[in-house]
Design a protein around this nucleic acid. Structure first.
Length: 570
RNA sequence: CGGGGCGUGGCGCAGCCAGGUAGCGCACCUGCAUGGGGCGUAGGAGGUCGGUGGUUCGAAUCCACUCGCCCCGACCA
């Protein structure tokens, strides 16, 4: 391809809306354009990268024995009513009506459709195991789309579904997918980690998420190097600490805390560390409201809270109106002392003494509060999120956890019989009995991977593609293409030679200043650059520049192809 | 959903408070010049100021409604 025939939609200035680096660079490099909130068009340069990701995913899925198909994006409500998710899915499911006023939705995922196909086609265990996948556009009406392609409403996903006659076979299919995912992310050239994940509302036996490690990630991942353990922080159970509770040293006092709404403000005003305070969060329970108490410097783990019988699932926080009506105070001054709704406290809170908490009166807190003496010890549970430095739950020698941020790009899941049961997907086993199928589902965020790869591979000049993802492998920058016949001929000949060798090459033959050519090629992140100019042509040489290494080298013309190939990673 | 912010040529912004000729930079087009890192120079084209309604002699500017986009949100409950 020549840039003279290409839509090279690069931007010199950064659009004001773009916050994270991948979003900025995708816009600046002319890869995507926003059409509506969370909805993007893919321009040629971006599409080439997207196709690279797709191709790798497709190859490895095929190699793992999965079969590709393509399912509809628009799905009838009946199917979702059958599985129960028409009610359960909530506003993220975009619903619409056709001209006959029949209900449909835009598929946010395809368990229903795939199950309906399989239950009609599969009769016997002899037809199994089966793993079907597709690469398709999905739509989830996110509350708050953000970070460009990273959390869009419309996005591209590879989703696979396995069907087996036994739990053991299903486990087999799961392991196979897990290994295929490792190969995929290796080939994509990403720094990633497979972590134990929450099976969430879907239930199921186990699940792993694949995360690309990046500071802009929305998830927190805990690692334990010593034990080779990694998990999403929300899944990590934290056992009760073994030490006891210190004896009370202070008496309980009410103090004025005007304007204090946050733990930070509270600590500042009273000059106490956050670990001496507690925060009380009010959530909707199965009967009325319930208070959850964690230490001031800890975070409530929504998954753990949800798991409690007394808390409604999905978890919902009480509104300020409800708090005012039932507890009779403003947010910011809530505490367990004299609380008139059920209380659950975290393990660590149960072991605190002389702590600070809200007094359930506006602008007042208590100091020197102690369990048993000032208030009865409440129900104790594991409520908080694991943090950097916490003890590794599997460790016995005091191993600690390190927490980093990750972007979830893949998820493998055992579904068990949830959907086959709801939708009556049976087959006959080797004893002639009808038996419910065991399912697994396996997702990869194809479009998100493009953004994640940029988060991990960029510098101040632009994107630095891993070779496996680059829109073109080599670019030829022709300096003086329109002025020098020599340059034009040499660059065209080189272009032809590379193209004939099956190398994806972009010839920049625009009538622009050299600086413009160089910086655009660096912005869009082409891994290898050959510069053709009169100076070097006189010596029958080309100049090489490596985007990732910054390496420059002059290469004698006859050696060019061989030397260039030696620089390729793949 | 709550809170905040922003909609003015393709992009980035000023003008709005104090109503009166719509402006700047980049990009674009035409010359000249230049040619190894987003040069220089001369000229030019392009906007019913998100939409609707109102106030006014007069609205980008004031008022009301509305649409769109962005950011923040247990941190405290």
């Amino acid at each position: 391809m020549r840039t003279s025939n290409f839509l090279l939609a690069t931007l010199k200035e950064t659009p004001a809306d773009a916050e994270v680096v991948s979003h900025r660079l995708m816009l600046r490099a002319g890869m995507v354009r926003q059409l509506a909130s969370g909805i993007y068009s893919w321009l040629p340069c971006g599409l080439r990268v997207l196709k690279k990701v797709e191709a790798i995913v497709r190859q490895e899925m095929d190699k793992a024995g999965a079969l590709e198909l393509l399912l509809p994006g628009v799905q009838p409500a009946e199917l979702w009513q059958e599985s129960g998710r028409w009610k359960d899915y909530g506003p993220e499911l975009l619903r619409l009506k056709d001209r006959h006023q029949r209900d449909f939705c835009l598929g946010p995922t395809h368990e229903e459709v795939i199950t309906s196909i399989v239950k009609n086609e599969i009769r016997s265990y002899r037809q199994l195991p089966l793993n079907l996948y597709q690469i398709q556009t999905k739509f989830r009406d996110e509350v708050r789309p953000r970070f460009g392609i990273m959390r869009g409403r419309e996005f591209i996903m590879k989703d696979a579904y396995s069907f087996d006659v036994s739990e053991q076979d299903s486990r087999h299919a799961y392991d196979k997918m897990y290994r295929a995912y490792e190969r995929i992310f290796d080939r994509l050239g990403l720094d990633y980690s497979a972590v134990e994940a929450d099976t969430g509302s879907i239930g199921g036996s186990f699940s792993h998420e694949f995360h690309v490690l990046a500071d802009s990630g929305e998830d927190k991942i805990a690692f334990c190097k010593a034990l080779n353990f990694a998990a999403n922080v929300e899944t990590i159970a934290l056992p009760a600490p073994q030490h006891g509770r210190a004896a009370p040293a202070q008496s309980m006092e009410m103090v004025e805390t005007p304007g204090v709404k946050t733990i930070e403000q509270l600590c500042k005003m009273l000059a106490v560390p956050a670990s001496k305070t507690v925060k009380t969060l009010v959530v909707k329970g199965t009967q009325g409201l319930t208070a959850m108490v964690v230490r001031g410097d800890h975070e409530l783990n929504a998954v753990k809270a949800e798991a409690l019988d007394s808390v409604s699932s999905p978890i919902r926080f009480a509104t300020s109106k409800e708090i005012k009506e039932i507890i009779g105070t403003e947010t910011g001054s809530i505490g367990p002392v004299g609380m008139n709704i059920p209380i659950v406290i975290d393990h660590t809170v149960a072991l605190m003494s002389d702590f600070v908490c809200g007094a359930n009166q506006a602008d007042r807190h208590f100091t020197g509060v102690n369990w048993d003496r000032d208030l009865p010890l409440a129900k104790v549970a594991d409520l908080r999120q694991a943090e950097d430095g916490d003890l590794c739950p599997g460790g016995e020698k005091g191993e600690t956890l390190t927490v980093r941020r990750g972007i979830e790009v893949g998820h493998v899941f055992q579904l068990g019989r949830k959907y086959s049961r709801a939708m009556n997907a049976f087959c006959t086993n080797d004893e002639g009995e009808k038996t419910l199928l065991f399912m697994g589902c396996y997702g990869i965020g194809v479009s998100r991977i493009v953004a994640a790869a940029i988060e991990q591979n960029h510098d101040e000049r632009g994107i630095i593609w891993p070779e496996s993802l680059a829109p073109y492998k080599v670019c030829i920058v022709a300096i003086g293409y329109h002025r020098s016949e020599k340059v034009r001929q040499a660059s065209e000949a080189l272009y032809q030679q590379l193209d004939d060798s099956g190398i994806e090459v972009l010839l920049d033959n625009r009538n622009e200043r050299p600086g413009v050519l160089f910086s655009d090629m660096e912005l869009i992140g082409i891994p290898h650059r050959i510069t053709v100019g009169e100076k070097s042509l006189e010596k029958n040489e080309f100049e090489y520049y490596g985007r990732k290494t910054g390496e420059t080298q002059t290469i004698a013309a006859p050696d060019l192809l061989a030397v260039l190939k030696s620089k390729f990673e793949i």
